[in-house]
Amino acid sequence: MEVHLVSESLKFMVLGMGIVFVFLYILVLLMRLQAIIIERYFPDRPSEGAPTSTGESEEEERARVAAIVAAIREYRKTQTKGS
């Protein structure tokens, strides 16, 4: 029996890409939903923080990096305007 490989694989492509997109799209919706729920009912209290000391320093580190990046970006903006 001769199987037409190309038309078979095209069907697989439609099925596969369909499932992958549906899966990740549902995941996007669920992520948004859980973000809304968690932000509303269980917000991170500043006193609570992270349970371990390493987690805390990681958060601080991230905030510091963000501040530095923002500062550099602002600085570069003014530089390009000036020149």
Binding site: F12, M13, G16, L24, V28, M31, A35
Partner: peptide
């Protein structure tokens, strides 16, 4: 979250090359 869709699009590499 919406950047997850980009991770889906790139799987076209799999099915396209199939």
């Amino acid at each position: 979250p919406k950047t997850a869709l980009l991770g889906a699009a790139a799987q076209f590499g799999i099915f396209g090359s199939l």
